[in-house]
Amino acid sequence: MLTLDSLSKTYSDGTRALERIDLTVPQGEIVALIGGSGCGKTTLLRLVAGLDRASEGSIVLDGETIAQPHPGVGLVFQEPRLLPWLDVADNVGFGLSHLAKTERKARIAHALEMVGLGEHARRWPRELSGGQQQRVSIARAFVANPRVLLLDEPFSALDAFTRKDLHGHLLALWQETKPTILIVTHDVGEAVALADRAVVMRPKPGRLDDAIPLALARPRDPASPHSEAATRRILAALDRSLKPAQAAAPTEAAQWW
């Protein structure tokens, strides 16, 4: 269980990036964080990853407070951020140096198979396409078996075809160990394709505005009436989130989930 309790972030220049975020995510749930630019989605993810410190509030994972990078939390960045001097296999195994060599090799090989790059283990990152690099980056995060996996718009720079393919890889990996996933996205279709719940955020300062459950069976067909209805509900919520905030509404709205 991941619990964010009254989480706020104010930067040193006084910018209030996040305002009293309350969110509880049961183990294994996929939550899509969706909202316009500047609504604090990435800030929220960086706090959960332990890369930045919250100004107020707390992040608790299975009873343990997170204030710095935690072994149970993995992060996939917007760009692949592969280390160019390591080949694909060594990039995937970057966080596994504490393991025995045979186990490390086996886990790397399995993760690469899962993302369809088994034959590319000895290639340099520069020899891969953008989509392949992002698959390596996802494998690198999954291979450490995190309880929580954070994804910061990981597919935003890719074409629709590659994006759909990567959704498949992501869900296949998720099926294996069922980590909790928080995925930041601008793409409503992506939220509907992947998430169990879409959480809509409102900007200035970033707050949670609405939550739309997406209890759809997998695999999902984006053209099905259920998916289309879910898309419409998220779009309506996004529209509302872009309108000026009602007095006292955000805090109350944030309470019910």
Partner: peptide, 15 residues
């Protein structure tokens, strides 16, 4: 998982 052609087609060619 099917390998999309578009993805691989963008791989940097080996010099």
């Amino acid at each position: 998982m099917a390998e999309p052609g578009a993805d691989d087609a963008k791989s940097a060619p080996k010099p």
